[in-house]
Design a protein around this nucleic acid. Structure first.
Lengths: 226, 226
DNA sequence: GCGACGCAATTTGAATACAAAATACAGTTA
DNA sequence: TAACTGTATTTTGTATTCAAATTGCGTCGC
């Protein structure tokens, strides 16, 4: 039996294969199950996903536009290697966008959106206290996503998200140290407060600094590795 | 007979069809020969370009990621309409990136790059004096491209360029008035001077303002139209 | 005459087939 | 034996084919 609840009655969603593949591949790359530098074997992966080469190749090309994979004509695609140079290159761009997000969000967020972000922050705090990394990461992403949402500029969200994947992938590998984790929590605490106070300038600054600190942690981890 | 000049001996360039198609379609959209809102007829355009649907569709999907076309599942692609809302949305994002470009370029540009930009500026000035619109536009683009180049951050260039297409298309339609043209020249003059002086803060501000003025002109033209 | 329904024609999405280029490998020669 | 050359295999790029969904048109019913 269907519940008699009044659904908003939206159009049903139809997802082209290429879109699902983009999402799946991106997740694999960000989470490292397709390691940086790895060649992308078309036939094998098509087999795995149960699709033909056409939509798969479309997906790979889209990810190439995002910078997560590199395609070389007649030589196939590979997961773009993570280099310090690349991260340093992405950082200022994403930094500018994060700052802009802060400014816009502080001005444009609805009270409900602020309340929701605070709720997400509270939930994330509890995961932090339980030292539940996976849940923490999930909430962390949700909070940043909600901030983009609150800024009310889809172009900004899309652009920032797309650049963000390139950093997230590196952050995924650099395992979160206890001290960095605590610092990140404090930073989140601070910018959540700035949002509640609707202090645009402060929120912008805090978000950029948060990113800068994130990058510093990754930089450290990369240096250690080498 | 070949000249015995010592070529730098670079690898020869191989361009996949999809890349050529992206460029060709983008130019058509920016210059208006594929008007905003127009449905993209796959078969017809494939015929025109003499290619099959596979690479053509790949190109369309890439342009969709850039925001120049909108694809609706099972209903085909159309050139994204130009709306004031869209422009207002793109503006702050591109503004932040232009400002960043200014900051980085003022710091990182080589003397040769600055000289080259000044040369381009001089050439553009002569086209302005001759009221040669097409040549002016070409040089204008070249200058902004050279600025991105001078900033030395490929991710920044790619992101800014991609957003820039969406504005350029609107600017192409809004025909340049004499007063706006003169103002634009003055703005170029000013930021070229700021670059030569390597005043990062000033250059950043001027570039953002230049964009803001550009947008204001487009806004005016759009309002008049309606 | 107006609107709803059903079928045909078109168009889109995905799979397969074919061509061209790259890689792998073996045979030959110095 | 080591290096080069030529051939076979694999992989990539593009074209073609097939299936599914949408659009357009004509007919039927009211």
């Amino acid at each position: 039996m269907n519940k008699p609840e009044a659904q908003p009655l939206r159009p049903i969603e139809r997802v082209p294969l290429r879109a699902s593949l983009v999402d799946a591949l991106r997740q694999m790359i960000v989470e490292g199950s397709l390691p940086a530098g790895e060649k992308i074997n078309e036939r094998a992966l098509c087999e795995v996903f149960g699709v033909s080469r056409t939509p798969f190749r479309e997906a790979v090309n889209l990810l190439a536009a995002e910078g997560l994979v590199t395609v070389t004509p007649h030589r196939g695609a590979a997961v773009t290697p993570i280099t310090l140079a690349e991260l340093e290159e992405v950082f200022p761009v994403l930094g500018a966008l994060e700052a802009l997000t802060g400014e816009l969000a502080a001005r444009a967020a609805t009270d409900a959106q602020i309340a929701q972000i605070e709720a997400l922050h509270a939930e994330m705090t509890s995961h932090y206290e339980a030292r539940d990394r996976a849940a923490y990461f999930r909430l962390n992403e949700a909070i940043h996503g909600a901030l983009y949402e609150a800024a009310g500029n889809p172009t900004l969200s899309r652009t920032a998200l797309s650049l963000g994947f390139r950093l997230r992938r590196a952050r995924y590998q650099a395992n979160l140290t206890e001290t960095r984790w605590a610092a990140a929590m404090a930073e989140h605490e601070a910018f959540t407060a700035a949002l509640r106070a609707r202090d645009a300038g402060l929120l912008a600054r805090l978000l950029r600094e948060h990113l800068e600190n994130k990058l510093a942690a990754v930089r450290l981890a990369l240096a250690e590795e080498a």
